[in-house]
Amino acid sequence: MQLSIHYTDHMVAEAGSYSPSAAKPAQVMASWAKLGLPIQVIEPSPVTLEHDAQMVSDILSCQINNGFSNRSSNVAESLPYTTGAMLSAARGALDNGYGAIAPCSGFHHAGYSFVGGFGTFNGLLRLSTGLREDRSGIRQGTRHVIPPNINSASNLPVGESE
């Protein structure tokens, strides 16, 4: 069995910070390659970011500081890809039933309208909204991810009511 790794070089950045988080994905991939692990690399697509629209715009255009307390264009360019990798891996795990990996931090210290703890955006926020969209059938251009035993109108198992 191969490990499903959701990765692209676009998610790697030199953050100009003492935190190595933005460079870790490439280091992890190199380590796994050196170990000869059976991996299948799946390239994630960039995703939109579910945060305050003005904050997103200002960070991506390097007008305000990111979670690394700078205005690095390298970090800004990587953000839709790190978030995309997390969402892609979550979808992959649901699809394959056993798991998938996005070799990036969960960047969970940021909030809807603030950066924090080396996190610029909160990947878990995007993950939750992305998976909710999938479940409700909003995701366009792909199959809907609604288990057959779930009533999509109520999100309850078929035969149960609120």
Score class of each variant (00 low, 15 high):
Gln54Met: 07
Ile5Thr: 01
Ala90Trp: 10
Thr120Ile: 08
Asn65Ala: 13
His144Thr: 13
Leu60Asp: 00
Pro46Asp: 03
Ser17Tyr: 09
Met11Arg: 01
Ser136Asp: 06
Ala90Cys: 14
Thr129Asp: 10
Asn70Ile: 10
Ala100Phe: 04
Lys24Asn: 14
Arg143Glu: 09
Val75Tyr: 07
Gly116Ile: 06
Pro44Trp: 09
Ile5Gly: 00
Gly92Val: 06
Asp134His: 08
Ser161Cys: 10
Ala13Ile: 05
Val47Thr: 10
Gly123Lys: 12
Met11Gly: 01
Asp52Tyr: 06
Gly130Trp: 11
Leu127Pro: 00
Lys24Thr: 05
Ala53Ser: 13
Asp52Val: 02
Arg143Phe: 04
Gly137Glu: 03
Thr82Phe: 06
Gly119Met: 01
Ser78Lys: 07
Val12Tyr: 06
Gly16Lys: 10
Pro80Thr: 11
Val41Ser: 07
Asn65Leu: 12
Ile39Met: 15
Lys34Gly: 08
Tyr112Cys: 05
Ser128Pro: 00
Leu127Phe: 11
Gly116Asn: 09
Val75Glu: 08
Pro38Cys: 08
Asn74Gly: 04
Ser21Tyr: 04
Cys62Met: 15
Val56His: 05
Ser72Arg: 05
His108Trp: 07
Val47Tyr: 05
Ala90Asp: 00
Gly119Val: 00
Pro25His: 09
Met55Trp: 06
Tyr81Glu: 04
Glu162Ser: 05
Pro38Gly: 15
Ser105Val: 03
His109Ala: 13
Met11Leu: 15
Pro147Trp: 14
Pro157Glu: 12
Ser105Met: 13
Ser73Glu: 04
Gln54His: 10
Gly137Asn: 01
Ser161Thr: 11
Glu162Gln: 04
Pro38Ala: 15
Thr142Gln: 05
Gln63Arg: 15
His109Leu: 06
Met86Pro: 00
Met86Asn: 02
Val145Asp: 08
Gly116Ser: 12
Tyr81Asn: 06
Ser152Gly: 13
Ser57Asp: 15
Asn70Pro: 08
Val56Leu: 07
Gly116Lys: 04
Glu77Leu: 14
Val28Asp: 03
Ala102Glu: 07
Gly36Leu: 09
Glu160Ala: 02
Ser128Phe: 14
Arg126Asn: 10
Leu94Val: 09
Trp32Phe: 12
Ser113Phe: 01
Val145Ala: 10
Ile101Thr: 02
Asn74Met: 13
Gly116Phe: 08
Tyr81Ile: 02
Met11Pro: 00
Asp134Thr: 02
Ala53His: 07
Ala110Leu: 12
Pro147His: 14
Gln54Thr: 12
Gly16Thr: 10
Glu43Leu: 04
Leu127Trp: 05
Gly159Asp: 03
Ala33Tyr: 01
Phe114Gly: 02
Thr120Cys: 07
Phe114Lys: 14
Ala30Thr: 08
Arg139Gly: 01
Gly119Phe: 00
Asp9Lys: 11
Ser17Thr: 12
Ala110Cys: 08
Ala76Pro: 01
Ser69Leu: 10
Ala33His: 13
Ser61Gly: 02
Gln54Arg: 12
Val28Asn: 03
Asp134Glu: 14
Met86Arg: 02
